[in-house]
Amino acid sequence: MSSMKHCLYWQGEFMLTLQFIPFTEIESLSSDERIEKLLSIVRENKIALVEGTLHKEESAALIKKTMENINQEFRGIEFAVIYPEQNDDAMFKRLRLKLINVLLGNRRGLTIIGPASVVKEIKQDPHKIDLYTTSHEQKSRKVLKQKHNSSSKR
């Protein structure tokens, strides 16, 4: 298996799995297959770190496919695509990067996709990304409290 798995422990009890997907693992796949592969990883409650960027149309297709898959267990995704060439204003640089993309595919940049049940929010800034996670315990406590409040109102 060419992808690497990394595990982090948070407060000693909440495990977060980051699965790295190298570009070589998805470059030969069609857009549909690529999206299906990424969503299957996310549905296993893992955060996918993908080498390279999705096409703009693929990002929209990813949202559509996510919506089709939403149910009581899978509540959706949080994702961020980092396009490194955005900061390069020089025309020659941009042309060079476009040529690299044509020759090698969209392997520059990074795509992060996580399940909404684990990743609460990804805050993007031109220079950094903040990823906020949700503890399952916290979430279930919150929901129970809400249910309790709504039933006591009645």
Partner: peptide, 10 residues
């Protein structure tokens, strides 16, 4: 949106 959680409506 990229996520829709029915519990948010509760």
């Amino acid at each position: 949106a990229t996520k829709i959680d029915y519990e948010d409506f509760l």
